[in-house]
Design a protein around this nucleic acid. Structure first.
Lengths: 347, 347
DNA sequence: GCATAAATTGCAAACGTTTTAAATCGACCC
DNA sequence: GGGTCGATTTAAAACGTTTGCAATTTATGC
């Protein structure tokens, strides 16, 4: 069995002080004589005393943890941002000594039930919620319980006030359109997914808004929608776009994985990127730099966002701000070689 | 403030039973009358009762958590396997309802101090340790404390018995050599790193052993060593290999990131892969499929490994096995297009 | 030297659960 | 009708910490 852990009682006995005094001394209370504080601190250091989390949590009502639900998907589907996100979150929390709890939701188990468990067992002082759905029961639950949380992503319903941080996908997609338009493109394709996530609307709306802003009736947009996890259907949707009688000269993909598929299929169809087709993605995943000719995309700086989410959550947990905290991060264009001037005429 | 959480006391009052009985009923003890058990279970379900983790931990000495230290490195350095690893771990733990704690170690803060804190604060019932160093103080600490843990990776010192799971890099590198040898290669390059991690020795030794096994004195191996995080030095080391008067016809890289750099530099030097140079990596990171012409590598199936590590740890936590648990996983070759027959003569 | 105030320390309750040991309740037997 | 046994329930302690309040010690003023 593990070697015994020092407790406050032992420390008190050893110092011939009460538990109370030792506890207060370690907490740095002014009411304890400076000399005593120093003596206690030194003894604690020497004994390698580490306070018991459970006891502290029980009495104080604060666990010192921030929770997050870890969705377990199919065998080969790992959230590609998880590593970055978790690292950023850890980075944001580490200053306060707050740790991160990852509660796995088994396949089939609802994420909400795991979240409820985390919240109601008192494991966490606050939670992070990612991948916001159009109708998100997690957000409804957390608000109803009035439990501290920060969401990575927005609801479409702007009446529902809560703490969120989001990447400004709308702006990015507008920027992509403007850039491509200025390069002479008029016929656009958008590859998107069928999942009921809000980010897809935000991005698509951003694109539509930019088109409307331009006010050029010759601009045309074809949308291809594929289910999120069905690779076959995804490829099919892309190919419908690529093999239409009138092919778009520029394709914007909802995120990099789709953009990479577009580039692969384009290559398979004998198209040269960016001469025959411009492709722009979103996220700047590692592979986008390696896939020839190099994908132009937007960097969402997940790690940085997660870090800020961690900091926001800490703010909320300690002293609840009056108004919800919100933060819109503008992604930066990573210009590689997958976009270029529109092919004019037939050459 | 959050809506109140149901407690055992409330449930007991509501049912007109003692706390003891309710607790036992929910735990399914036979000594409680079946009718009572059912009555209690139903009431608990209806009230949405979730036991308080801290209280339970405090009295039982079991936290229901497994811990892991999350290293925070430089701004753009994220452990590329973290997402997969954490997902696998969660998958392995979810059956027992065990959650994962990620304790961040700030830059500069020793990983050991964070580990100590996690262990001695009673936060976790067991821990996972990854990236084993040649001299690993974490392992020494955990053993000395006799605290349940599983390591992802091995020490070189085989006298030190502990629970580990490792990828058989030695075997993979032997396999790579055999395959390349059979394709006619005789002059090999190995790109490795200078960090004191054990896996680099295991893999390099596996390569050396395979060479020795073949007993062909014409086989030659040049080793290029680069610091782990200095991109410039890495590129330099690779180029020394590529621009030697006698260039290897096949380069084996310690892991994919190095292999991708080799491919990039080879392309920059005007070499065609695999005609002029065969390259083989290790890990099968996502980008390796996208980097032209497709990197031949070994899949270490991190997620699967992590899952098994989780299961091993649960076994160890509940009823300590007499002998240490060990598991060597053989990685599978992912044959893409970066390797081929050796260029013979000058053509 | 004594009263009083200020500084310092300690007692005991509380947090919500598990668990040991003991109490209560029926039912059954003679 | 008292005793015994088994089934069922409960009281109370314990886990290690924080904290309101009281007690003690020390310093201050006259």
């Amino acid at each position: 069995m593990p070697a015994r852990v020092t407790t406050l009682k032992e420390l008190a006995a050893q110092l011939d002080l009460s538990i109370t005094t030792v506890s207060r001394a370690l907490a740095g209370h002014q009411q304890i004589a400076l000399k005593t504080r120093e003596r206690v601190t030194e003894a604690a250091r020497q004994a390698g005393y580490v306070p018991n989390t459970a006891a502290r949590t029980l009495v104080s009502g604060r666990s010192g943890f921030v929770g997050m639900v870890l969705p377990i998907r199919g065998p080969n589907l790992v959230d590609s941002f998880l590593g970055e996100f978790v690292t950023g979150l850890g980075e944001g929390l580490v200053s306060h000594g707050t740790d991160l709890i990852l509660a796995a939701a088994a396949q089939g188990q609802s994420e909400l039930s795991v979240l409820r468990h985390v919240v109601e067992s008192g494991r966490a002082d606050g939670v992070v919620v990612t991948r916001i759905a159009e109708v998100d029961e997690r957000l409804a639950y957390l608000r109803q319980r009035n439990f501290p949380f920060v969401a990575h992503g927005r609801l479409l319903d702007t009446d529902f006030a809560y703490n969120w941080l989001d990447t400004d996908g709308a702006h990015a997609f507008g920027e992509a359109f403007d850039m491509l338009y200025d390069l002479g493109h008029r016929h656009f394709g958008l590859v998107t997914i069928a999942e009921p996530m809000t980010f897809r609307h935000l991005r698509q709306d951003g694109l539509a808004a930019a088109i409307a802003r331009r006010g050029d009736p010759s601009v045309r947009l074809d949308v291809a929608t594929a289910p999120r996890f069905d690779r076959g259907a995804r490829i099919q949707a892309i190919n419908r776009l690529l093999h239409a009688v009138e092919r778009p000269t520029a394709i914007v993909a909802l995120f990099d994985e789709l953009a990479l598929s577009v580039m692969e299929e384009a290559a398979r169809a004998g198209l040269t990127i960016p001469r025959d087709l411009s492709v722009i993605g979103f996220d700047n995943i590692v592979a986008s730099a390696y896939a020839p000719p190099g994908l132009t995309t937007f960097d969402a700086s997940i790690r940085q966002c997660a870090r800020e989410i961690g900091e926001m959550l800490l703010t909320i947990i300690g002293g609840r701000p009056a108004a919800p905290l919100t933060r819109l991060i503008r992604p930066t264009l990573v210009s590689r070689a997958s976009h270029g001037p529109a092919l004019t005429g037939k050459n």
